[in-house]
């Protein structure tokens, strides 16, 4: 919720944003109409990944940056399909 306010303020001020958010909060986020959101199927408190899962972190961030660059209209979002996992060894 708090970052939704940041997104709206930044977009209003002319700075494009993308939010990376756990999908468990999607219901609270969509009503705030943020510009761009990448939802992950990750647990609360771990929106990017489990600790040290650099592969997943990179994938999520790349998807977010891709959305930042390609979105042409507000309320653009995607739910990434990958389930939460511990970092591969």
């Amino acid at each position: 919720m708090s970052v939704g306010h940041i997104s709206r303020a930044f977009e209003t001020a002319g700075t494009p944003t993308v939010i990376i958010q756990s999908n468990v909060y999607r219901g609270r986020v969509v009503v705030m109409k943020p510009a761009r959101v990448v939802y992950t199927k990750h647990l609360m408190g771990r929106p990017m990944s489990a600790p040290f899962d650099t592969e997943r972190q990179t994938h999520v961030l790349r998807e977010a940056l891709k959305m930042l660059e390609t979105a042409t209209e507000p309320e653009t979002s995607v739910i990434l399909p990958d389930a939460y996992r511990i970092a591969p060894k």
Binding site: T12, T15, T17
Partner: peptide, 24 residues
């Protein structure tokens, strides 16, 4: 929403940000 977020938006613009990644 009323005070800080708009101020932070101006602050990062002053620092030359042209886009932002936000992680709640």
């Amino acid at each position: 929403t009323r005070e800080d977020a708009p101020q932070w938006a101006e602050r990062v613009k002053d620092e030359g940000w042209e886009a932002a990644v936000l992680v709640p």
